[in-house]
Write a protein that binds this DNA or RNA. Sequence first.
RNA 1: GCCCGGAUGGUGGAAUGGUAGACACGAGGGACUUAAAAUCCCUUGGCCAUAGCGGCUGUGUGGGUUCAAGUCCCACUCCGGGUACCA
Length: 923
Amino acid sequence: MEYNFREIEKKWQQWWRDHHTYRTTEDPSRPKFYVLDMFPYPSGAGLHVGHPLGYIASDIYARYKRLRGFNVLHPMGYDAYGLPAEQYAIQTGQHPEITTNENIARYRSQLDQIGFCYDWEREVRTCDPDYYKWTQWAFLKMYGSYYNTDIEKACPIEELVAHFEAHGTENCHAHGTEELRFTAQQWQEMTKVERENTLMNYRIAYRGRTMVNWCPKLGTVLANDEVSEGVSIRGGYPVEQKLMNQWCLRVSAYAPRLLRDLDQVQWSESIKETQRNWIGRSEGAEMTFQVARSDKSLLIFTTRADTIFGVTFMVLAPESDYVADVVTPDRQAAVDEYIDMVKHKTERERMIEKTVSGVFTGSYAINPITGNEIPIYISDYVLAGYGTGAIMAVPAHDSRDYAFARHFDLPIIPLIEGADVTEESFDAKEGIMMNSSNDLLQLNGLTVKEAIEHTKQFINSSGLGRVKVNYRLRDAIFSRQRYWGEPFPIYYDEDNQPQPLPEEQLPLLLPEVDAYLPTETGEPPLGRAKNWVTANGHPLELCTMPGFAGSSAYYLRYMDPHNDNALVSPEANQYWRQVDLYVGGTEHATGHLIYSRFWNKFLYDYGYVCEAEPFRKLVNQGMIQGRSNFVYRIKDTNRFVSLHLKDDYDVTPIHVDVNIVHNDVLDIEAFRQWRPEFKNAEFLLENGVYVCGNAIEKMSKSMFNVVNPDRIVERYGADTLRLYEMFLGPIEMAKPWDTNGIEGVNRFLKKLWNSFFNGDQLRLTDDQPGAEELKAVHKLIKKVTTDIESFSYNTAVAAFMICLNDLGKLKSVSRGVFEPIIILLAPFAPHIAEELWHTLGHTGSVCDATWPQWNEDYLVEATVRYAVMFRGRPRYNIDVPADTPADEVERIALAHEGAAKWLEGNTPKKVIVVPGKLVNVVI
RNA sequence: GCCCGGAUGGUGGAAUGGUAGACACGAGGGACUUAAAAUCCCUUGGCCAUAGCGGCUGUGUGGGUUCAAGUCCCACUCCGGGUACCA
C-alpha cells in the first residue's frame, strides 16, 4: 500500500472533527498551557505561505505540550475589521461583512487542510457583535477612568471628581494634572459643560483636540504605528498633520509600566529594544525662560541642562501655543506666512526636504543662568507633540541646532574642551566642561556626566525648573472616519457633549448605510445611517474604532468565548491566566504588542484579569520572502534562452509565474498557455530543459512569486508542508520561500511509510528492541524533546531523518521502538502519525498518547571523547572506549603527545570518569 | 544618523570554546528498467595527490585571547530589519 496522503489526511481530519479531539475545557486537575497565534486579517488574497510558518510552529508546540500532559488552549480567530474590505466595498458596493465572511470561509478551509489542532468552538471574530460588545465595554470603562500616578493604576473618574470637589488640583495625582491648575472653589463654580471638558483632560479614553496623522486619500486619521516614512502603511498614501477633535486612549500614562514590565516577559531582546525605543524614556529637566520685557515665559524640556551656558537662541514649534505670546507686531506677517507654509507641507515633504527653515518672532528670552538675551525663533524642526514644544538651542552640541545657527548666522559657543565646532556640532556626552561657570553655577572642569547631574540638582534647588522624565510614546488616536469598525458607545447630548451609553445597551450594532463613503458634508460614513440616534433622539458618534481596538484583548476572549456577562469570567481567567506562548511577526512590535499590553494593564488595574502582562513568551517567525523566477527573452524576438546561455545574447529578464517552474526548470507547455503572447514562443534549451533564473524579492502578485499553501498540500500533502516549513531553517530567521527542497521531506515520509508497511500489515517484530534500535530511538527522543523546547524545529526534523537512516540499516524494527517514534512525529506530521498509531492497534487519538522519556544509558557511545581538564578547564581531547577504567584514562592522557606536553611536571592527583561526559583530571 | 540582527560549500542550513559543513536540496557516477518515472547505492567545500594511504587550505576582512576560535575580545567591510528633526 502506498503512502496516500490525500486519503489519510482527509480521513483523520474528519475523524478529529467527529471525535472533538481538539475541544478544550477548563480542568483544574491538569496544568494549563496557552499557545496563541496572532490571528490573521482575512484578506482577499487568501492565506499565503508565510502565514502557516508561525501557525505550524505553534501547532507543534501545542501538540507537544498536550502530549506532555498539559491542558492546552490553542484557539484561532479573525481580525475581521479592516481597510481592504471597506475599500472593496467602496468600489463595488458589496457590504464589507459579505466580503469578510467569504474571506474567512476561504481562510478556514485553507487552515483546515493543514491539520491544525485549533479548538474551533472558541473561534472569535472582531466584527461579531457578541465579540465587539466587549470592545465597546472596555472603551466605556476607559472613558469612566483616570490614571492615578501615585498608585500607578486606573481608577474610577468619580474618585477624581470627589477630589476636585474637595481640593481642586491640589495634591492631585492624576495623569494630565500638571498642565491644569484650579481650586476646589473654581471647580464648584464651573458649569456642567466646563466640568466635563475639564474631565476630558484626565479620562483614559478621552476626546481631545490633538495633532493627528490625517490621510486624505483614505479619508481618515491614523495612529503613529499606522504611518511609516510619511505615508500610510495600508495603501502608501501621503499623510499630513492636522489638528482635530478625536477620541484618544491615554496610553502615555502607562509608559513607565509598559517599559518596566518588559523585564517580566520572555521576548527577544530585539523586540524589547524596539518597544523601549518606541516608549522612548528620556530623563531631563524642564526649565522656564522669561521673555524679555514681558510677563510671559517659556517652559522648555532638555536632556542637556549642562549646556545651559551655550544657549544662544530658543526655538518654538510652529503649532506651539507660545507662538501667540511672543510674536511682535512687526513680525506677525512673516510668522503667519511661515506657519502657513509649514501647514501645507505633508509629513512626507517635511521629512524628505529636511532643509533648515524658520522665522524670527521678534522677541527675546533671558537665559536664567547667564542673564543674556537670546532671540526666539519658530521652526518646524521642533515638534509640538514632544516635550513642551519649545527648546533651548545649544548649537555647539546639537547637530540640529547647529544647522539652524549656521543658516541664521547665530553664535555658537563651545562648552567642551577640545571640541572642534567649526565644521559640525559635538553631540557626544563626553569630555570636560568649559565656558560654563559664573556666580550662580560652576561647571568648568567637570565631566559632562557630572555636569548633567550637578545641573539637575541646581535646577531643582534653585526653583528654575524641575527634573522631568519624558516619554516619546504618545496617546493612541482612537477614531477612524470609516464604516467597517466598532461603533463608539457614545452619544452627544443637548450641549453637544459626548456621553457614554449605558452598559446594558451594548452592543451598539453597526448600522446599515447606503454607501461606504463620507457624506456630502464631509462626515464619516456613519453619517449616512438612518436613525443613528439613541432612544431619546440624541445623535450617536459617527466615527468607528481603529483596527487595534478589536485585536487588543482577543486573547482574553478565547478563554471564555461564549460568556454573555463578562469579557472573561474570573474562573476562566484564573485558570488560563495569560498566553504562555505567543507566535507572530515582528511587524506588530510597536502597534498591537503595545496596545495589547496597555489594554491588559488597564483591565488588570480593575482586577478583570489576573496577570499584568498578556504574553509571557513571544516567538517571532521571520518574514517569508518570495523567490522569483525569470525567463530571458532575446530582445525584440519571441525566443527565450536558458539561464546559462543568456550571456551570449542581449536579453530582457521577465518574471515568470513560479507555479509553472519546478526546481528552476520551466514547464514549457504551461508557459505557452500562461500568456497569449507566449503561445508561439521558441526556446533555446540547455541539456534539453529550460532553466530559469531566480532572485529573492518581496512576495507579491506583481512578481508572480506568491506561493499558496493549497498547491503544496495538493501536490505533497499537509504533513509534507508542515515538515518542510519547519525544515527550512530557524523559525525566527527571515528566509526566502523555496520549494526546491520539499522533495526531501516528502521522500522522508514516503520512506517512513514504505519501511514499515508490507501490504496492509505493519512490518514490525514483537521482539525486545536491540541495543542499536534503542540507541537510535533514545537519541531521537532526546533531540526532538530539547529541540522543540528551544524552537529548533529544523534540527528536530533532521533528527527524524537520521533516525530513519539508522533504523534502515537494521534488519527489523520492533514495535517497542516504533511506537515512541510515532508519538514524537505526531506534533510535526499529525495525519501520518495518527494513521500509523491506529494501525498499531490503538483506538484513541495519538494526541492523547504520552510523550516518551529518553534514557541516557542507551546513549553512551562505543567511543567517548574525553577532554582532559586542567584547573577546571578542558585542555586536550582524547578518544577512548566508553568503558575504559579511570586509571587507564589517566595513563592514556599522560601518554598522549599533546597531553603529555602540558602535563609535564604535573602529576594528576585523580582522574574522574563519567560515562558520556568529560573526564576531569584534577591536578 | 541611531538601535537591533546577520555573514559558514553550488543552495537552505548544522555545529555546550574541542574532528567545521549534521540533515536536506542540487550536481556527478552507478544499479534496476526496452525506456522513462519511481526507488536504491556511491561521490560531492577548495586545491594537490591517488593503485592505495594521504597532504595543504578553508566559516566576510584585519588583529588579539587560548593548548584549542565559526563560536570569546577589538577594529573594519558588506547585507537585512527597525526607527528618526524626540531636544
